[in-house]
Write a protein that binds this DNA or RNA. Sequence first.
DNA 1: GTCACTCATGAAAGATATTTTCGTTTCGGT
DNA 2: ACCGAAACGAAAATATCTTTCATGAGTGAC
Lengths: 300, 300
Amino acid sequence: MKETFASPPAPGALAAKVRTLSPSMTRSMQRVAEAVAGDPAGCAALTVTGLAELTGTSEATVVRTARLLGYPGYRDLRLALAGLAAQQQSGRAPAITTDIAVDDPIADVVAKLAYDEQQTLADTAAGLDTVQLGAAVTALAAARRTDVYGIGASGLVAQDLTQKLLRIGLIAHAPGDPHLAVTNAVQLRAGDVAIAITHSGSTGDVIEPLRVAFERGATTVAVTGRPDSPVTQYADHVLTTSTSRESELRPAAMSSRTSQLLVVDCLFVGVAQRTYEQAAPALAASYEALAHRHGARGRP
Amino acid sequence: MKETFASPPAPGALAAKVRTLSPSMTRSMQRVAEAVAGDPAGCAALTVTGLAELTGTSEATVVRTARLLGYPGYRDLRLALAGLAAQQQSGRAPAITTDIAVDDPIADVVAKLAYDEQQTLADTAAGLDTVQLGAAVTALAAARRTDVYGIGASGLVAQDLTQKLLRIGLIAHAPGDPHLAVTNAVQLRAGDVAIAITHSGSTGDVIEPLRVAFERGATTVAVTGRPDSPVTQYADHVLTTSTSRESELRPAAMSSRTSQLLVVDCLFVGVAQRTYEQAAPALAASYEALAHRHGARGRP
DNA sequence: GTCACTCATGAAAGATATTTTCGTTTCGGT
DNA sequence: ACCGAAACGAAAATATCTTTCATGAGTGAC
């Protein structure tokens, strides 16, 4: 075996090459070349024998055609064809810009959702004020205790942040009940931190505890999609999340959640960096504990 | 669980799949998988024998690895590799991510986190089995009631899904307590749906209620990063989430959550499509209700 | 420690796919 | 009608891929 390295198969050039070489081809070869140019993806799935049958010719002719097109043999033509097919496929992506429709096939739904969330992440990262973020991180790292307020979908984000902070040894709460939240907020004082998470910035149940914390002298942070909304009134630092367009089938909650989670992750990693000496072993310990638990229960 | 491998050869998902399946691979297979993920273009140019030599293993091992990655044999893996190589060549980012370091400035943290999560989303979307997803959606749309099980970070995802399903008028629960979960599971019967969300696939507290639901005849769905893990044993449909590599400052929970949320969103939108007549007014109604609430309390 | 057992592994046999060879067919010119 | 050249495909030869099977390394029980 020699394993010849053919000239780079020049992706899009195939159709052109077929046209150029067509005159110098015999009838059978033209049939093969046509099939290949017409449906690269389909042909890539066929063996020599398969392609020979499809075009009503023989294996030998297929190989001859491959040679004429500049490849050492059919095997290499096939590889090039697969590459071409993949490129074509990926080029056919921009159907994504449209909204999700009721009759979209499930594969499109996946693609569109993924794309939208990626977009949301990019927007959020671009729009995040790193100065405010840094200030919030500093406050968190030094806090005696931290409260995180959120309701509904944002409540889950609040809990997510709380879980993470607990993992690195900080004291954090995410009261689920609005009354409990206010009760908690009353306990805060200077040096503590309160974080309110609300997309609209107008959720009374979340604004209220933040206001209390603010008045008690705690450092307050608002994570909201509306930097001009009521909640910012009581926030020392405002972190803006991004809102991509919503639609009937894609409620705003979906993208705001993605955005909020990115912000929350940034807060977490920032704090973990600042408190590395304490955070690293704490993280390792909680990881260990869970691993054992899984080992013990998972595989009987 | 049946469906040992039914994964469609989804081109972009390869690196992710390697990462996902790596734990269940033997040493030699890992060497092969690594080579393939590391240099798709180079490997596409090699025959089985060549790749076996390169990785210091045997042809048999190479074929075995190809199988594990979801292809019928090496030939098909090679074809997919060629496709991948072509895509990379045509201007797709090589995906070089440096880990987050302790002394990274906060702006870098934001950028890296956003990029990683975007990557995770892309991987998940590419690796999601739309057939399984469709089946799960169908079951959900027709379910009398739905239970969603999850613990820790995955518990929040479970709640997120539950909240969404409730919004479109379905009956869904996400019991937080493991005992409560089992108690709930006992109530399920044929036609109902149980969904287990667990990254490791080995969380006993989540497997147990799913097993109960499974035995009661409910349709069971597992959302997990490990398609070969114990939880899939009791799952009619397995939805695989993607795992990007974790690091000290970036626990696995972070990217698995992103991935899980995408899957959950897909489920939700899929169900909303199928039950559009019912879902659309329900969504509108809940939107209305919240808007009034914000208006009333937000602006005093 | 030893034994029995499982499982990963590669050598080689077996099956396919590709390439080459070679004889037949076709076609244009005389 | 006959000749020669080129096209073509059947089948042999080769390369490549897949499967089988024996071996040995690792693991847990005793």
